[in-house]
Amino acid sequence: MTISWLYIGIFLVVSLGLPAVAIILAGILAPKKPSPEKSIIYECGVDTHGETWVQFKAQYYLIGLVFLIFDIETVFLYPWAVAFDRLGLFAVLEGLLFIGILTGGLVYAWKKGAFEWA
């Protein structure tokens, strides 16, 4: 099994290396004529007004948190699904209880308007 992961490692390195090499190659081939005019940030032809890194609304963070919680929940369920043949009905119901409790969370988030994007 370790050899499989070695192959995956090679594959990932090549996958990341290929676009990197292509970009570096293109960087060598491409013309380089930098000018201050060219390197201005795009903002409808005028200089950027104010700081770029503006503060974002909390909604994004909230969505991120809800996502994180459901992500963890689902990941927990994967080994449960793989071991399904060796689980009794009781164990299956426990898994469903797990889902049920988190569905409660989804309903709460819904009622509190966490998904209203306004």
Partner: peptide
Amino acid sequence: FLKEHILPAGVDRIPYNLAPILAVGGVLG
């Protein structure tokens, strides 16, 4: 391939150059 790479003013170089690589590598993987 033959187009100029314009480096805009004030970019954060390492993440800026890493981003397109990750975008492709994440799919190829």
